[in-house]
């Protein structure tokens, strides 16, 4: 039984676009960490073996011959819709869409089909999922033990680079991670901050959660409502406090219009829900120590 969006070594993974340069590079990293990758999809290389894995023409062809739980896509934006629908129709339980700049109307089609097929989507524009020492899917340095160490802190981030920095700081402070959930930087995503928070709240291996948010949208505010019901401590950093209003800061989701999606609004909502909100990434570990006295680490 998969815990998706928490990734486990027992999850059987299909890599769509495995034979491309990025697909190959990251599949090797995923395999190094022990991720159970069972096959790849690449229409032009169907029937071949790549990195020791069988390559199929489609997700449907792959799933006809073997059980698969999760598909992860190394697919360019214009081809995401067809590849995603192929994986959903083939019957995967979860789909990780790493691609940035997928047309939103394609995502609308994908989300509707996924909902009908009871398939959970993570992303688009996510850096992926990491369970340190166990498995990872995506484009995170999940194989880098300076950044990721097994432990009991769950981490949620819209951003891959910032998520990496946060996990690195946690590891340096002696806090390993139970799981990293990259939810993606787009405004419309399959697994929201609240969904990820709920998954980590229900995960028996997670003692506390670090929620890395960003300005724009209303996901942090919605997640705050759920956080208020949790007994596990939540510490948060929200990026974009210094961002000027009305400018898109790279992530399509990170834009403040009027009061909607503002730093102040998110911080107030989270603090009202009992979440500790910190000013800089470096002090997240201190805030965790304060909320989890039993860990009491020296963060010097």
């Amino acid at each position: 039984m998969t815990m998706f969006p928490i990734i486990r070594r027992t999850d059987r993974i299909l890599v769509q676009g495995l034979t491309g340069s990025q697909g190959s590079f990251w599949t090797e990293r995923m395999l190094e960490t022990g991720t159970q990758i069972v096959a790849g999809v690449s229409p032009k290389r169907a029937g071949e073996t790549h990195l020791g894995l069988p390559i199929f023409a489609s997700a449907r062809a792959a799933l006809a011959g073997m059980p698969v739980d999760i598909a992860v896509m190394f697919i360019p934006p214009a081809a995401v819709r067809d590849a995603a629908l192929d994986a959903i129709e083939a019957g995967v339980r979860g789909l990780v869409v790493l691609t940035e700049h997928v047309p939103t109307h394609d995502m609308l089609t994908i989300f509707a089909r996924a909902a009908a097929a009871d398939c959970r989507i993570v992303g688009p524009n996510t850096a992926g999922l990491v369970t340190p020492g166990e498995a990872f899917v995506g484009i995170m340095p999940g194989h880098n033990t300076n950044v990721f160490q097994p432990g009991r802190i769950g981490v949620i981030s819209r951003s891959g680079s910032l998520g990496t920095l946060i996990c690195l700081n946690l590891t340096r402070a002696g806090f390993g991670q139970s799981s990293f959930i990259g939810i993606g930087g787009d405004p419309m995503i399959g697994t929201t901050t609240e969904d990820a928070l709920r998954a980590l709240d229900q995960d028996p291996r997670t003692d506390a959660v670090v929620l890395v948010g960003e300005i724009g949208g209303s996901m942090e505010e919605t997640a705050a409502t759920y956080a208020a019901t949790m007994t596990k401590p939540v510490v948060s950093f929200i990026a974009g406090r210094a961002a000027p209003e009305g400018k898109r800061m790279g992530h399509a989701g990170a834009i403040v219009a009027g009061n909607a999606g503002s730093y102040a609004g998110k911080r107030a909502a989270l603090e009202a829900a009992g979440v500790t909100v910190v000013d800089t990434p470096r002090v997240i570990a201190d805030a965790l120590s304060a909320r989890l006295p039993i860990y009491a680490h020296d963060t010097a």
Partner: peptide, 29 residues
């Protein structure tokens, strides 16, 4: 910096310590 989240965070930290950022420029993806 690389990545929108990390770049925004770098701007935030500059402001937090009393400096003023000259730009947003990310080379992620």
């Amino acid at each position: 910096a690389n990545g929108a989240g990390l770049t925004m965070t770098t701007m935030d930290v500059v402001r937090h310590y009393g400096g003023r950022p000259a730009n947003f420029l990310e080379i992620g993806g």
